[in-house]
Design a protein around this nucleic acid. Structure first.
Lengths: 360, 360
DNA sequence: GGCCTGTTCTACAACGTTGTACAGTGGTGT
DNA sequence: ACACCACTGTACAACGTTGTAGAACAGGCC
């Protein structure tokens, strides 16, 4: 920058002003500076600017694992959303490690990023205090409610209820669940199970514990195992609600291994609407939680908090729930021809302010 | 850092030395400094250090899209490999845009990262000049050979040949290909097709153009379409070699839609060994290109180049080809029981120095 | 003419580290 | 007794940018 200034016959600060688009610059000066920049092939040193301005133009995204399709697609969406707002994304894999999630919240990337979007998998309501950080933060997911940070979450209960109602409407009565977490009252598992329960109760059907299949990690393998256990138990089953798509794919695998026809004998529904379920055999009906909206809202909320950083006004914490919808496919016999799909129902989202819960 | 120094009664530089583990420090001094750090809750400003040292501890990874499972899994592996070496990874999605790949090579993240690992999808041998950059660079993939940078690539020809030989050994004679790129002489498509051709010729079988299915983008959807076209063409087919797993899954979908039994009527093999093919119905035999090794080698090569930056010695450019193997599964009838898998064959990799090709 | 406002540019001092050069201090070998 | 070395710590000047304050000038208004 010094060299450019010398060559253009102006001060260093003027070069800085030109580069940053400061308006009050005589056109002739601007041209001279730009010419000098071009001739010398000058490029701004981003690190120095970061140091001086205390901004980096990067945000961190902490997700469990990219090898899980849901998070890979989420990361994809967040990166695109950030890009349109001029931000770069740094991805941190927490790998199902509680300590890694704590590290990230403790500000592992505080200096190199302007803010953090985290999708916690291991932290619990008891850890609410950890979310009281001094940098812009947006929380994703259903594990943590009431943290002192903006929150983007899915329409879990409503969507799960709609899924169950849909299966009931199709005449299914013995609806198994794959992926329950016994004893949990928060998290996707609990909320989706709640929707399931509500739908059954509304229909006057008792929840049969024999139909509730546990699965700790929500992977394809655990989905297959859990489905296998349910089938081997001898319980009568005519439909399966897998609490996410990975498990639905695993469950499908287990059903296939036992020569059970889907949807002929057993109907199957997943959750997340990842790309995979559109190409499995048969294709799987799933809940589309509004991934683009989740990513877009998360980035927007974070950008707003980053902008807020300079002043001293703090907007109230905000919770965003995007619209979700059930995409009917072959596994529920919802489509006339193979490969087709149709929106079976839509659950409307919402946006609201909330008060953080006190942390212990 | 000033405050810490004052509190500990030492100079700022001494604090710096303590933080950076400089050995010649009296234990008592070290203790005082560490106590002061703890009391004040001091944390080093990474940006300032980056500016001063011209190192960031971050590397960039440029891949087409995270929503493609192969790249999501690759990113996962690279992140883990980098982590064990104390590096953080910045992911750049090039989204199948030529311009984005050029931007990254032009040094979009030059200041914020210490080096770049790029997996080009759009750049061609004509663009070789773009790879002559002044920062540490490692190239992945089969599109670019001879660039002035270290290169990690798969054992494409050998693996494809082995796949084809395996299908021949199983008695298949009408082996279709899904995903060919007509007219290309570089890239995964050309190399894998070459392996296919070599195997057929070695077996004294003519290559039938009617069996070669084109597919531009290697997605599930294109795999399904291409498979559909091949089947509708009426050509006799008893095996399919999909040039990647995404297309294999799409092809499986198309086969299922026509009630064709796999492997009864048609055997199916993919390439990449992504997690998906272990849970499809049936499970799909695939080439495992050694993803962990690719990621590990790429990071190692980059780390070596980064270390080289200070001195003026330059090691010759290096090409690493990891071992690959064929994992036999249900789609080729290679396993006795459902869900099992076995290594059908292994192709050994190599490491060699090479001279870059002249760029036009 | 004097005052004010707006434009254009500059000088200086940060931002928070680390590299360099050097100054003590104490021990060792001759 | 002296030179020499290893250890321990310090002062200063960078790294490359931007915020701040203000100078110089022009034009408009009373």
């Amino acid at each position: 920058m010094h060299d450019v200034a010398a060559r253009a016959g102006v001060s260093v600060k003027t070069v800085s002003n030109v580069v940053n688009g400061y308006p009050h610059i005589r056109p002739s000066t601007r041209d001279r500076v730009e010419a000098a920049i071009a001739e010398l092939g000058y490029r701004m040193n981003v690190t120095a600017r970061n140091l001086r301005t205390r901004r980096t133009g990067m945000i961190a995204l902490a997700v469990p694992e990219l090898s899980l399709p849901y998070f890979a697609e989420l990361a994809d969406s967040v990166i695109r959303a950030a890009e349109t707002r001029g931000l770069t994304v740094l991805i941190e894999q927490t790998s199902g490690s509680r300590q890694r999630e704590i590290d990230v919240l403790a500000g592992r990337h505080r200096d190199t990023t302007d803010g953090l979007i985290i999708s916690p998998l291991e932290l619990e309501p008891d850890d609410l205090g950890l979310f009281d950080v001094d940098f812009p933060l947006v929380v994703l997911g259903e594990r943590i409610f009431g943290a002192p940070a903006d929150h983007v979450t899915m329409n879990n209960v409503a969507a799960a209820r709609a899924v169950t109602e849909h299966l009931l409407a199709l005449g299914r009565r013995r609806i198994a669940v794959v992926g329950a977490h016994a004893g949990e009252s928060v998290g996707s598992a609990a909320l989706r199970l709640q929707g399931y329960t509500e739908a059954l109760e509304a229909a006057g059907i008792d929840v049969d514990p024999a139909l509730i299949g546990e699965a700790g990690l929500w992977h394809r393998s655990t989905g297959a195992e859990t489905m296998g256990r349910l089938l081997d138990s001898g319980t009568e089953i005519d439909a399966v609600f897998a609490l996410n798509d990975a498990m639905a794919l695993g469950a499908l695998h287990a059903l296939h291994a036992r020569d059970i026809d889907v949807p002929g004998q057993i109907a199957l529904v997943g959750f997340d609407d990842v790309d995979d379920v559109r190409y499995s055999v048969p294709t799987i009906t799933s809940v589309s939680p509004g991934r683009e909206q989740i990513a877009g809202s998360a980035v927007d909320l974070l950008v707003a908090r980053i902008a807020e950083r300079d002043g001293d006004e703090r907007a109230p914490f905000r919770r965003v729930v995007p619209d979700s919808s059930i995409i009917g496919r072959e596994s529920t016999g919802d489509v006339p021809r193979r490969g087709e799909e149709r929106v079976v129902s839509v659950q409307h989202g919402s946006t609201e302010d909330f008060e953080p819960l006190p942390s212990s």
